[in-house]
Simulated scan of single mutants.
Amino acid sequence: MFRFLRRAGQITRIDITPPRPKADRAGIAVVLIVRNEETHIAEWARFHRLAGVSRFIVYDNGCTDGTLAALRTEAPDVVILPWAQKFRDGPREIHNQVLAYAHAVANFGAGFRWMTFIDVDEFLVPKQAASLPQALAHLGDIPQISLPWHMFGRSGHMTPPEGGVLANYTQRNPDPMSDQKGLRNFKMIVDPCRVTSMKVHQIWTDGSPQSWNDRGETTKRENRAFYSADHIQLNHYYTRSDAELRAKIARGPNLTTPDADHLRRVMRKVAAIEENVVLDRAALDWLVRTGKPSKISP
């Protein structure tokens, strides 16, 4: 089912035999690997449920707080799998997040037209349509799209404010296609029954890395002409408050990395995000436009 591709002491890409699509497959599934996000998981799940997500498939990377209970409250049909592990092929560590994503495609992908793989600090925001499935409908038989990060910083908050993420964090870096290291990256929405290879930020479909933007246009993702957030905007709330940023650093990365290297990488990215910011209310505007702002408040 899976084939591992190795590089530089880590396995970060897994090849997949795509699942056979079910005749009645439909909707969009969100795949999440999570550890101790009790504070924010309810808002995240509530928003995406309101945006039309059909099912959450959640990989529990050792939660010890109320994260899973909050998920079950917001989405009683959530699928939760234990996933606290570190696997190696000899000296090479297998990326646990990529392994979860590949497992989700192979075991659940047959039932859905679309599948996406995001974190609790990432929100998929419909820009014109009332829901994510409606925002994807114009793409026809396109097998996948890449959505650039819109990187949000601390918005001046030293400690967690009341009222949730969307209401309080509205300042982001103005350039989703920035050449600054760590600011330009993508998450993807794919047809799981055409997935042939997985990485965290790149997915191959039909044996090809070719990707499309949310307008259905294709070129190299690195080209500025690829940029679009006309139909779906991917908000990445990288830091939240300063206190939460410090806690994020203390938790460490998904792969085993020296602490000092991890700290430098995170703080360099934060500085780049906050060097210049613009106001972005896309998520709040969608809630107002669809008449749902009262349903998202914590």
Rank of each mutant, 00 (worst) to 15 (best):
P148V: 09
S131A: 03
S146A: 15
M151H: 04
P143N: 09
D141K: 12
H150P: 12
H150I: 05
S146T: 03
G156R: 11
A130I: 01
H150Q: 13
L136D: 10
G156S: 09
A130T: 13
I145R: 00
L132R: 03
L132M: 06
S131Q: 03
H157P: 02
P143I: 02
L147C: 01
M158P: 08
L147E: 01
W149C: 01
H150C: 10
A137C: 03
D141G: 10
K127A: 14
S131L: 00
P133D: 05
A130V: 08
A130M: 06
Q134L: 14
L132K: 03
P143G: 06
H157C: 05
H157T: 05
R154D: 11
K127D: 09
A137E: 13
L132S: 04
A137H: 06
I145S: 06
W149L: 10
A135N: 05
L147A: 00
K127R: 15
H157D: 09
M158A: 15
S146L: 11
Q144S: 13
R154S: 14
P148L: 12
P143A: 05
L139A: 08
L136E: 08
L136M: 12
M151A: 13
G156I: 07
D141A: 15
L136P: 03
L139M: 11
F152Q: 10
D141T: 14
G156E: 07
L147I: 02
M158R: 15
H138Q: 11
P148D: 11
Q144G: 13
H138G: 10
F152G: 08
G156P: 10
S146H: 03
A129G: 05
Q144I: 00
I145H: 02
S155N: 14
A137V: 01
I145M: 07
P148S: 13
D141S: 14
P148K: 01
M158E: 15
I142L: 13
S131D: 02
D141Q: 14
S131E: 00
L139C: 03
S146Y: 02
Q144F: 01
H157Q: 09
S155Y: 10
Q134C: 03
M158Q: 15
P143C: 09
P133F: 09
Q144N: 14
M151D: 11
I145V: 13
F152Y: 15
H150S: 11
H138M: 08
G153W: 10
I142P: 06
K127C: 14
A135G: 08
S146W: 00
Q128Y: 06
L147Y: 00
Q128G: 03
H157S: 03
K127Q: 15
Q128F: 06
A135L: 07
G156F: 03
H157F: 13
P143R: 03
H157W: 14
L132Y: 06
Q144C: 08
P133A: 11
G153F: 08
P133H: 08
L132V: 05
W149M: 11
M158I: 14
Q144T: 04
L139W: 11
G153T: 07
L147G: 01
S155P: 08
L139Q: 07
S155F: 10
M158K: 15
A129C: 00
L132N: 07
K127V: 15
Q144K: 15
L147M: 04
M158F: 13
W149A: 11
S155K: 10
H150G: 04
F152M: 07
S146Q: 07
Q128H: 12
G156N: 12
S155L: 09
A130S: 14
I142N: 01
G153Q: 12
I142V: 14
W149R: 00
